[in-house]
Design a protein around this nucleic acid. Structure first.
Length: 116
DNA sequence: AGTCTGACCGGGG
DNA sequence: ACCCCGGCCAGAC
């Protein structure tokens, strides 16, 4: 039987949970960290099922490479995602994170840095 | 079991 | 700098 850690979706969730509040990352960055740089679409698809997870997944901290809140419509309300990010001190303009580059949290850098 | 789709990305026009 | 198109992977019908 497949281990939970081996499931692609579950690995995505684990990475997303590691994103510090007030920081964001992109689907592609997570996909690359998992070894499938070309599976960025799967990361977004995994977020679609993130609501069903027992452990909370801060999916609002994941945006596309442009810093746009492409998945905002998949949250409870039309502006739920933006409000969640705003509550963490992130400023958004026109569904796009203004200082995206500064707040960008790259798992390939942050996690590998502390990796033994 | 085959087909389609998707909260994307990168490159080319 | 903007828009469009192909690719890639796993789940849903």
């Amino acid at each position: 039987m497949a281990k939970i850690e081996n499931d692609f979706f579950e690995r995505v969730y684990q990475v997303v949970r590691l994103i510090p509040p007030g920081r964001v990352t992109s689907y592609g960055a997570i996909a690359r960290f998992l070894g499938s740089a070309q599976s960025s679409r799967m990361v977004g698809y995994a977020m679609n099922s993130s609501h069903a997870q027992a452990v909370y997944v801060p999916a609002h901290r994941v945006v596309n490479r442009k810093g746009m809140l492409t998945g905002k419509h998949f949250f409870g309300g039309p502006n739920t995602m933006q409000e969640l990010l705003a509550s963490e001190g992130i400023s958004i303009l026109d569904d796009t994170i203004t200082n995206f580059q500064e707040l960008f949290w790259d798992p390939n850098k942050e996690l590998m840095k502390g990796f033994e």
